[in-house]
């Protein structure tokens, strides 16, 4: 356990760079959300915040607190892992819903990929 003011300079610089990178990716993701043209295109940029953005914050937190406590403090890694497990649920839901609605509205999206069963027995 060391004092905050005794942190080595290289740790402070590294943590600052990681945090800036992370906020940069979150910002680009937000800009992309605004500038993209259609719904599906707009789904891509916010993924920057939940992947590399979250990774950089987690890495910064691990480096900072591990140095501060003079031992590995690794639970920050759980955030990217849990994000990777939960984000696909909402993304898939949004993509499926949008495809369904656009097809009902007759917009220019691909037709269903499932081939309909040809036998009329059922």
């Amino acid at each position: 356990m060391i004092n905050v003011s005794e942190l080595p300079l290289w740790v402070e610089i590294l943590v600052a760079i990681l945090l800036l990178l992370s906020s940069l990716f979150a910002l680009i993701g937000a800009i992309g959300l605004l500038r993209m043209k259609d719904f599906f295109q707009r789904m891509h940029p916010p993924a920057l915040a939940s992947t590399l953005g979250a990774w950089c914050v987690a890495l910064a937190s691990i480096i900072y607190f591990s140095t501060l406590k003079s031992g590995p403090v690794l639970h920050g890694w759980l955030i990217p892992i849990l994000l990777a497990i939960t984000v696909p649920v909402t993304t898939l839901l949004l993509a499926r819903t949008s495809l369904f609605r656009k097809r009902m509205a007759g917009e220019n999206v691909p037709a269903e990929v499932s081939s309909r069963r040809t036998d009329s027995g059922s």
């Binding site: 499926r96 990929v113 081939s115």
Partner: peptide
């Protein structure tokens, strides 16, 4: 596979055929 495509930015899992033979990806 759906987790991987979602986690990698730039690809979105959009639809899987009922017989699991075709995947529609944006």
């Amino acid at each position: 596979l759906s987790m991987i495509t979602t986690v990698v930015p730039g690809t979105i899992w959009s639809e899987l055929a009922l017989d699991r033979s075709i995947l529609l990806l944006h």
